[in-house]
Amino acid sequence: MSRILITGGSGFIGTNLVDYLSSKGHEVVNFDKKKPKNTKYLKVWFEGNILSKKDLSKCLESFKPEYVVHLAARTDLDEKKDINGYSSNIEGVENVVEVINSAPSIKRTIYASSRMVCRIDYVPSNFDDYCPPNLYGESKVLGEKIVKNKANHTYVIVRPTSIWGPYFEIPYRTFFDTVKKGLFFLPKNHYPKKSFGFVLNTTYQIEKILFAENDKVLQNYYLSDYPEIDLKNWADLVSMELNNKKSNEIPMFPLTVIAKIGDFLQVLGWKNPPLTSFRLNNLITNMVYDMSDLENLCGKLPYNLEEGVKITADWMKNDK
């Protein structure tokens, strides 16, 4: 078994990854400034901040990991004025790269970026083609460039798409909660295809990338389930699981009005209104990535869409 350091192991994907890799018998340490969401793993928590090279160096020296999965980041979209608000995604990445550069015993590092290095309706021609829609996306672009320009160790950059499942937060926890309350409405006659990922499939994919033979792994992957899902089908499955009925649909015009109201409420200071123009655009726009490279590496995924929805709904019922 291997020693694996996970930065950001108290976050959404990190919480699931700590649990998954620990269940496989690996020795795992969670480097995070926040306590674990799953208190079962308090014993493997190393309190530290990626903005401190001293903290990172101390963790590496004491744990001596063979592999690293770097997930720690600021992931909200709230910063509108200064990209330095996302220093964790820039200076934090630079610190991780520099510390790992000085640890040649580490066999491979996975750096988590984001699909938001490109806006939702932009299909990049390659992994160096960027079109970020906001400051968060820009910070992730800078993080990728730091890895590519400064890392002298073996690494893979992954771009999680839209990942959902147990321990999730905004925006997909909001989606499930809204469906549960019967307040979610799909735009009528808009059924886009989406590259979304159930988090327990994502952790499986990360494991496969982490331990793949060098001649079989690429340097860049999107993380998503395959094939892509139909948003209407997904919403119906969630609604049936939570409410025993299919999801609601209404014409586009009233949703546009509600989204404009949400935009105005954001200006007034409400960080997370149920619907904004940004979210409405996401609802009606296809977001499909070519997942063939990841499928070739990982093969069949452990969970199908129906199983993922049921596991997530059951977790919500027990999450107090």
Rank of each mutant, 00 (worst) to 15 (best):
I261A: 09
L265M: 15
S239F: 11
K246T: 10
L231P: 07
L268Q: 14
K271T: 07
N233Q: 13
N220W: 01
V267S: 10
S277R: 11
L223T: 00
E241Y: 03
Y222I: 00
Y221K: 06
L268M: 09
L265Y: 12
K232P: 11
D215N: 12
A235L: 11
F211A: 03
Q266I: 10
P274M: 04
E249F: 04
D263W: 02
N282F: 13
S247I: 13
N281E: 15
V257E: 04
N281Y: 12
P254A: 00
V257D: 06
D263T: 05
L231N: 08
L275M: 08
S277Y: 06
N282C: 15
K232I: 11
I229D: 13
P254M: 03
D263F: 06
S239G: 10
P251Q: 01
N233I: 13
P274Q: 05
Q219D: 07
N243H: 10
D230W: 13
V257F: 11
E213F: 11
K232G: 12
I250K: 06
N248G: 02
M252H: 00
K245L: 00
P274R: 01
I261W: 08
D236Y: 03
R279M: 11
L280W: 07
K246A: 08
S239P: 02
V217R: 05
E249L: 05
R279I: 02
D230R: 14
F278W: 14
K246G: 11
Y221C: 01
F278K: 12
W270M: 15
T276R: 09
F278M: 12
L242G: 07
V257S: 08
K271M: 06
E249V: 03
G269D: 08
K271I: 00
I258Q: 10
Q219H: 00
I229Q: 15
K246H: 05
P254W: 00
L237R: 13
A212L: 09
I229R: 15
V267I: 15
N233E: 14
D236C: 06
W270L: 15
G262P: 02
D225I: 02
P251M: 02
T276I: 05
N220E: 06
E228I: 10
V267C: 10
P273Y: 02
E249M: 01
Y221Q: 04
D230T: 11
Q219W: 00
A259N: 09
I261R: 07
Y222H: 05
G269Y: 09
A212M: 06
R279K: 13
K271G: 08
K216V: 01
M240K: 13
I284P: 15
N248Q: 04
L283D: 01
I261E: 08
L210S: 09
S224H: 03
I250D: 01
L242C: 09
A259M: 06
N248W: 02
T285Q: 14
E241H: 08
S277V: 09
K245S: 01
P273W: 06
G269P: 01
E241Q: 12
T256K: 15
D230Q: 13
D215V: 01
Y226I: 07
E213K: 14
Q266P: 04
F278N: 12
N243K: 13
T285V: 09
W234V: 14
V238Y: 03
V217M: 04
